[in-house]
Each structure stands twice: as structure tokens, then as C-alpha cells.
Amino acid sequence: MRKHLSENPLPRCPRCGSLARPNILMFGDWAWVDAPYEKQRVRFEDWITSTSRPVVVELGAGKALPTVRRFSERNARHRLIRINPRETDANPLYGIGFAGSAGLTLKLLGAHVERSHR
């Protein structure tokens, strides 16, 4: 088994000094603190409703856990770019899908945009 090697010390809790954890909800995670999430959610909802033409670029979200896909489809307002090596099916009501790796596909799209703006 490989040991994680970090150049910098891993983050610690400022209150108790134990190893910090990401504040994300995992299955069966009863230690998750939702107060910061709720503040972020409210700020995001305020921002997304004030944005008239958002573009959602979705990278690698598969069908096995469709939470990200539902989020993208709900917020893209017909401007979804879905990039996935295997599951590219973007409903035309939401946007377009590209088959490929995120890094390479983004580079190709960026090059295309650059060429089209010359």
C-alpha cells in the first residue's frame, strides 16, 4: 500500500488540532457539519438566479451517481457542455456532449474558440 506523501503538512482543525476533513457529505457520514454548506448554497442560489446566461461545463460526471448531472441540467439553461469519456449523452434541451478526457477536450475547445475569435 502506498503512503501519501505531501510537500506541505496536511491541514489541521484550528479548534482541536486533529486532521481536517473536507466538508462534503458522504454516505452514512454523521459528522458532517451542514452550516457552512447552507451558507454557500444560499450564496450560490443568489448568484445563479442573478446570472442571465450561465454556461455549465460538466467534467466526467457519470450516470452511476447522477447528482452532478441533475445539477448541471437544472442550472445550465440550455448551455451545458458535458465532457465524459463514456457517457456523453447530453439531452439537446440542455446542451451538447463531447466524448473524451476532460483535459484534452478542454484544450481542443479552447483552441477552437481562439481560432474563431481571430
Score class of each variant (00 low, 15 high):
Met1Asn: 13
Met1Ser: 15
Arg2Pro: 13
Lys3Gln: 10
Lys3Asp: 05
His4Cys: 05
Leu5Met: 03
Ser6Val: 00
Glu7Arg: 11
Glu7Cys: 04
Glu7Thr: 09
Pro11Arg: 06
Arg12Ser: 03
Arg12Asn: 00
Arg12Val: 04
Arg15Met: 06
Arg15Pro: 00
Cys16Met: 11
Gly17Ser: 12
Ala20Arg: 02
Arg21Glu: 14
Arg21Cys: 02
Arg21Ala: 12
Arg21Trp: 08
Asn23Val: 03
Asn23Ile: 08
Leu25Thr: 11
Leu25Ala: 15
Met26Thr: 15
Gly28Phe: 03
Asp29Phe: 10
Trp30Arg: 14
Ala31Asp: 12
Ala31Trp: 10
Val33His: 10
Val33Ser: 03
Pro36Trp: 08
Tyr37Ala: 15
Glu38Asn: 13
Lys39Tyr: 06
Arg41Ile: 04
Val42Ile: 13
Arg43Pro: 00
Arg43Gly: 04
Phe44Tyr: 15
Phe44Gln: 03
Phe44Thr: 05
Phe44Leu: 14
Glu45Lys: 12
Glu45Gln: 14
Asp46Leu: 00
Asp46Gly: 00
Trp47Asn: 00
Ile48Val: 15
Ile48Glu: 00
Ile48Ser: 05
Arg53Cys: 02
Arg53Ile: 01
Pro54Ile: 04
Val55Tyr: 01
Val56Ser: 00
Val56Thr: 05
Glu58Leu: 12
Leu59Phe: 05
Gly60Pro: 03
Gly60Leu: 11
Gly60Glu: 09
Gly62Tyr: 00
Lys63Glu: 10
Ala64Trp: 02
Pro66Thr: 08
Pro66Val: 04
Thr67Phe: 02
Val68Leu: 10
Val68Met: 12
Arg69Gln: 08
Ser72Asn: 04
Glu73Ser: 01
Glu73Thr: 05
Arg74Asn: 12
Arg74Ile: 10
Asn75Thr: 01
Ala76Tyr: 06
Ala76Gln: 03
Arg77Val: 11
Arg77His: 14
His78Asn: 11
His78Arg: 12
His78Trp: 01
His78Glu: 10
Arg79Asp: 04
Arg79Glu: 02
Leu80Trp: 09
Ile81Lys: 09
Ile83Gly: 07
Pro85Val: 12
Pro85Arg: 10
Pro85Gly: 02
Arg86Leu: 10
Arg86Phe: 14
Thr88Met: 06
Asp89His: 04
Ala90Leu: 04
Ala90Met: 06
Leu93Cys: 03
Tyr94Gly: 02
Gly95Trp: 09
Ile96His: 09
Gly97Ser: 08
Phe98Cys: 02
Ser101Tyr: 13
Gly103Ala: 15
Thr105Ala: 08
Thr105Asp: 05
Thr105Val: 02
Leu106Arg: 07
Lys107Asn: 11
Leu109Phe: 07
Leu109Arg: 07
Gly110Glu: 06
His112Ser: 14
Val113Thr: 04
Glu114Ser: 02
Arg115Gln: 15
Arg115Thr: 14
His117Val: 05
His117Ser: 12
Arg118Thr: 10
